[in-house]
């Protein structure tokens, strides 16, 4: 995907020169292996700052919320779906945006790579579908497809669903993906086992809120955990409070989450909170045939009422 960079720069330069946008939001080269930093470019001569590779996992829709400028934004499949959700939820106007679509082959899982190596990783590069991981004394090659972020491996919307420009030809979508094998396993567990699983899952949480803040859906002016009049959730490291935060946040994302993976990627302690959001995604798909962010014309299932809504749970 690295050849996308030239095209992104070319498009960005043109948009800025023609005055169609005030800024382009994209990624610049990071200072750490497998990390890039979201950035903006306001002058055509600065577009060389923009890069694209397999480490652009942060969801850029997050940087559009309530902005007033005309913006060129670089969007993978998932970013584009969150941009759709943003437009539906009035967090940005379609007319403000020039969406530079990036057909995506999945981002690389930096934690997986780090966990496979005993030594510190000094650089990660890509060549012909191979990922080359360098440490001080060794160089290892892996198949790129084996190293995808978990959400990317399950992704069925790699192409942007909405765009004005394209940085490359559309890619083939993954077919016959079983998105919910792990969720079905959890669903089948007896209550005690589930409780234990979530107890353990969130035990390392430090309440830094990186998951919430990296999430393009979490734009509330005051999050429920930050409310103080009344205070809904305690502020300590109490496991009940921590779980309350994670459970409720996931519910707030029901029918809106695109499984972009920003939450899990951002977590400093590597918690897979996507187990919660994907359960809700699965329920929305099964109950309402709904996948978030695919169309500007339909509102998410939980903010509309339909007479044929399933209600088997009401006795």
């Amino acid at each position: 995907m690295s050849n996308y960079t030239d095209k992104i720069r070319e498009i960005s330069e043109r948009l800025l020169k023609e005055g169609r946008v005030d800024m382009v939001i994209g990624f610049k080269q990071g200072t750490m292996p497998m990390m890039n930093e979201p950035c903006f470019v306001k002058k055509p001569e600065d577009v060389s700052k923009l890069v694209w590779d397999s480490h652009c996992g942060i969801n850029l829709a997050n940087y559009l919320t309530d902005r007033k400028e005309k913006i060129g934004v670089i969007a993978k499949g998932c970013d584009s779906r969150n941009i759709v959700t943003h437009i539906i939820e009035n967090k940005i106007k379609r007319e403000q945006l020039v969406i530079i679509g990036v057909p995506c082959k999945g981002m690389i899982d930096r934690r997986k790579i780090a966990s496979m190596s005993d030594a510190e990783i000094l650089s990660v590069a890509e060549q012909n579908g191979k990922v080359i991981v360098k440490t001080k004394d060794a160089e290892k090659r892996y198949e790129r497809t084996d190293l995808l972020q978990k959400n990317c491996a399950l992704c069925v919307h790699r192409n942007p669903v909405i765009y004005d420009e394209l940085a490359a030809d559309l890619v083939e979508e993954q077919k016959n993906v079983d998105r919910y094998a792990d969720i079905r396993e959890i669903e089948a567990m007896p209550p005690d086992e589930k409780w234990h699983l979530f107890d353990d899952l969130f035990s390392a949480c430090i309440r830094c809120y990186a998951c919430r803040n990296a999430c393009p859906l979490c734009y509330c002016p005051t999050c429920f955990v930050d409310e103080s009049r009344p205070q809904w959730v305690g502020k300590s490291t109490d496991p009940i409070d921590t779980k309350t935060f994670h459970f409720l946040r996931a519910y707030h994302c029901a029918g809106r989450c695109t499984d972009c993976g920003a939450c899990e990627r951002a977590c400093p302690v590597g918690i897979n909170m996507r187990l919660l959001t994907r359960k809700l995604e699965k329920d929305c798909f099964e109950s309402f045939g709904w996948e978030a962010g695919l169309s500007l014309d339909q509102r998410p299932p939980l903010d509309v009422y339909k007479t044929n809504d399933p209600e088997d749970f009401i006795k």
Binding site: P191, E193, K194, W195, F198, F247, L276, K315
Partner: peptide, 25 residues
């Protein structure tokens, strides 16, 4: 999330359905 299914019940009861209310409660 580990809450027993039997702890949570949903029902739709009209104010005229006193028998159903008693049964559900």
């Amino acid at each position: 999330m580990g809450i027993e299914p039997d702890r949570l019940h949903f029902s739709w009861i009209s104010s005229a359905e006193s028998t159903k209310f008693v049964e559900v409660v």
